[in-house]
């Protein structure tokens, strides 16, 4: 019930960034606590507060899409080839982008970090081991997922949003094809598999370029650098948990932006914008919570 009504309703965009263009001046119930209904809340605090309230409404909708997606993962009917096609679109087509950006960031990080380490400890033998722990525990998954949020999130929202404004989603519903089943589920499954694969690859790329930078700039032997001594099971579990969480969150957040598109071509543009921002934000927030939980579950050895 929730999305079918919304797909065709011109209402304020959900999610963390209510857009000044699309939101009617009086934001009804959601912004009601902050301002008299006639006046738009002004000022930084009000706008942060409104963002927060919109965010809460958005989280509720996201939860509903997520539950329906899980339902259809087990109960839905899959169109032939849809999953493979999405895996190609999400995975293979992001490979170059992810490799390039993660390669760059790997070089930058080792260059900067080693320069700073030198100021405190002259001995560089543990730079590689610490770097590997950070890559496994966080960097590969989180920075890579920011990239995927941009690349994959925008793609999903643009596609689904275009289908909404050209009434293709309505046409699907006329043929007993629930958009969540027909559009979201293949993207969700494909993203789950491909995100994990891409983020593992991102870690490999990131570590390799960092290792090369250490060798070329600071003369750290490759064998010294590639030292897995500090990586323990807890780091691997936390890293993989992040991969899975991001892989699930990005398609759900972006599909939600796409399905709530309204209006013509501006609407598609806004939906895509929203998808990038909200899925990046989802990555950052999830990172904070999973990292903290990981720290409690696997306390660092002293």
């Amino acid at each position: 019930m929730s999305t079918d009504a919304r797909a065709s309703l011109p209402r304020a965009p959900l999610g963390a960034d209510a857009d000044a263009h699309a939101t009617p001046p009086s934001d009804g119930g959601e912004g009601g606590e902050q301002a008299p209904p006639a006046a738009k809340p002004r000022g930084i605090l009000a706008s942060i507060g409104r963002t927060g309230l919109d965010g809460l409404g958005g989280v509720r909708d996201l939860y509903s899409i997520f539950v329906r997606t899980l339902y259809y993962v087990f109960r839905g009917r899959r169109a032939k080839g849809a999953l493979a096609e999405q895996m190609y679109a999400i995975g293979n087509k992001s490979l170059f982008f992810v490799t390039f950006t993660m390669g760059c960031i790997g070089m930058i990080m080792v260059y900067q970090a080693t320069m700073q380490t030198k100021k405190v400890v002259p001995e560089l033998s543990l730079v590689g081991a610490s770097y590997m722990q950070l890559v496994v525990r966080d960097f590969a998954a989180s920075i890579g997922a920011m990239m995927l949020a941009t690349r994959v999130g925008a793609g999903i929202a643009a596609e689904i949003g275009s289908m909404v404004v050209t009434e293709q989603v309505d046409a699907l519903r006329m043929c007993a094809a629930d958009p969540v089943d027909y559009l979201v589920v293949p993207r969700f499954l494909a993203s789950l598999v491909m995100t994990v694969a891409l983020l593992v690859w991102a870690g490999v790329v990131m570590f390799s370029t960092g290792m090369l930078t250490g060798y070329v700039v600071y003369d750290i032997e490759l064998a010294t650098f590639a030292n897995p001594v500090m990586v323990n099971a807890g780091d691997v579990v936390v890293g993989l948990a992040k991969c899975v969480a991001y892989g699930a969150a990005i398609p759900i957040v972006s599909a939600h932006s796409g399905l709530t598109t309204f209006g013509g071509s501006e609407g598609v543009g806004w939906a895509t914008t929203r998808a990038v921002v909200n899925s990046s934000l989802a990555v950052i927030v999830l990172n904070f919570f999973i990292s903290t939980a990981g720290l409690m579950a696997f306390p660092p050895v002293k």
Partner: peptide, 15 residues
Amino acid sequence: GGAPGVGRAVNASVV
């Protein structure tokens, strides 16, 4: 290319 074109343009731009 209409509304789908706008979506593709935004996608290409952010990437």
